[in-house]
Design a protein around this nucleic acid. Structure first.
Lengths: 333, 333
DNA sequence: CTGTTAGCGCTTTCAC
DNA sequence: GTGAAAGCGCTAACAG
């Protein structure tokens, strides 16, 4: 028995109509007499006919498939975005080709996904490299960046105002009486994706403070496992509070403090940035910026659908509102 | 400018060979004179030719794409499996069509993914419904279940020995002196996916205890959010320890106990089942069964590649070894 | 409202 | 070692 035995031709023959008519019925074209439509539908069901999406894609030059690239599917930040993307995608009948691009050559992955003739792609990551930007500009396939800014303002993207959010976070800590607020992030947030860091700087400036290099903590990778050593550095620094890019990292720092007898929030404050479920799991629970993760994904996908349909008046750069959730890792006075 | 302007035909003309030769070069066929190969390769690079995977799929009846179905991408258990799947898939040059099947009609999703002509699919979930089993049996597309057992032993699957793992977990608690061990799980684990529960029963039997209905706690859904109310029920029951299917649930219970003054592990023990990162985040950290999540995904994908290649001697039902990680939520005496 | 006819871009015999 | 030609299963004009 062969895979995909029954084709549109079989249905046509069986229903005594042309392939074109079957195609019309399958595609919901209205110009079909109800009675013949019924006849065709009946045969389709009887033969268990399932249109071959590959053939359809070749003929129509549309695959109803979008590529989704992310660096780490096990990171809740990205998987939350992905959930929003997936929901909207399936609402619009698109499938998702998922690529966990971590450790692989991104341009290779991109090229591969474009070869699959996806109708569009959503890109997530900690930064936008030049090679990726070039690929994006070279192709006609629409792209949307989810949770990542294009500082040149060329590629459509959906984000919150990270600068403002971090400004608020740091200012808030100063108001609560903390004096030496550190900034902890993975490398890209110090070198390629600066909006969060700029919010930190802005708050310092407003508080009349100088940037203190010893309060800047950089890790290679935001994964949970890399947090332990940096946590110790932080504890041994003069910081009495920290804002962190990435909840896993923030959790690691918090646990390290508590495990070593540092009182949070009395002696040390932690503010994190993504409000994933982790923030409510740790004790003390973590005060956090709340970006609408699911919505960022959902809106990105929505914009992509518009781009793919070549609609006019597409809002290319969306900034979604964020909130700030006070929990037990700050004094909140 | 059109999407995908340059075709195999353009390359053929430019290199003054036939399409067939270009095809051979692209596909690494050895029967090509080195000099013409070089010439073709050169043109390919110059024209930036990228083979159209859709056309290729139609002609060859292979898409080098596999479907991956899971109920919740933000659940670390599933995303860990997915990571293993993705790694092996890309190692074998397969792409993944990801479908978060939660809340959608599964057979619909399945049908849709089969229409895309995937070469195989990996199915994850809390249970295997009859409709899904029927679809699987009806198609010729190979399936592998990852982290899910087929109790009829028909569909290939990769798992650990859940019965044994839970037996060990519960026995261990009895040995440590706990008396009334509860079992907490989402509904399917009481009705459709019984191997874990059977391990619990076996330990009870061996300890000469009767099943006590008041120690069986069932929730509709294993997501974190559903844990609070059940946690309270558990605290008010006579249980002095519990084994939990799902780390998010276990965390919720643990936090509830601690937040309400119950001492863990002195007065109450918790053992969880997936050893995701959460287990190390909570305080106290959680003793857990350790299924090799990444490997379950990886092995599933590996088996699927064999199935897709119609290899012989495929091990259809793999049981991977598990470990048991002692942490601070049990006495470990 | 329905049928005919070209392709979509590639793989794959089959010859030479 | 290379080319010609026939599809893969479907969509999309174009007729009628």
């Amino acid at each position: 028995m062969e895979k995909q035995t029954v084709t549109i031709y079989d249905v046509a023959r069986e229903a005594q109509v042309s392939m074109a008519t079957v195609s019309r019925v399958v595609n919901g074209n209205t110009n079909v007499k109800p009675s013949t439509r019924a006849k065709v539908l009946d045969v389709i069901k009887r033969l268990d006919y399932r249109p071959n999406a590959v053939a359809r894609g070749l003929a129509s030059k549309k695959t109803t498939t979008v590529g989704v690239l992310l660096p780490d599917i096990t990171n809740n930040f990205f998987s939350s975005l992905a959930l929003g993307i997936d929901d909207i995608a399936s609402m619009y009948k698109y499938n998702i080709i998922l690529d966990n691009a971590d450790n692989k050559k991104e341009s290779q992955v991109l090229s591969n996904i474009l070869a699959k003739q996806v109708d569009g792609v959503i890109y997530m990551g900690h930064q936008l490299s030049d090679t990726v930007r070039e690929e994006i500009n070279r192709t006609n396939t629409p792209f949307v960046l989810a949770g990542l800014n294009d500082d040149r303002y060329e590629i459509p993207s959906v984000n919150i105002d990270y600068t403002q959010a971090f400004y608020e976070a740091v200012s808030g800590l100063f108001e609560q009486g903390y004096q030496n607020i550190g900034f902890l992030a993975a490398k890209p947030y110090f070198h390629n994706n600066l909006d969060r860091y700029q919010g930190y700087l802005k708050a310092l400036e407003e508080a009349g403070k100088e940037v203190d290099e010893s309060l800047l903590f950089e890790v290679a990778d935001s994964r949970f496992k890399n947090g332990e050593d940096i946590a110790q550095q932080i504890r041994e620094s003069k910081a009495d509070g920290i804002v962190v890019v990435g909840d896993e990292l923030a959790v690691k720092v918090t646990n390290h403090m508590v495990d070593n007898g540092v009182k949070v929030p009395e002696e040390f404050a932690v503010v994190t940035s993504n409000n994933t479920a982790l923030t409510e799991i740790v004790r003390p629970s973590l005060t956090s910026i709340e970006p609408p993760l699911y919505d960022i994904g959902a809106v990105s996908m929505r914009i992509l659908t518009k781009l793919m349909n070549k609609e006019d008046e597409i809002e290319n750069h969306v900034t979604l509102p964020h909130k700030f959730i006070l929990r037990d890792s700050t004094k909140n006075a």
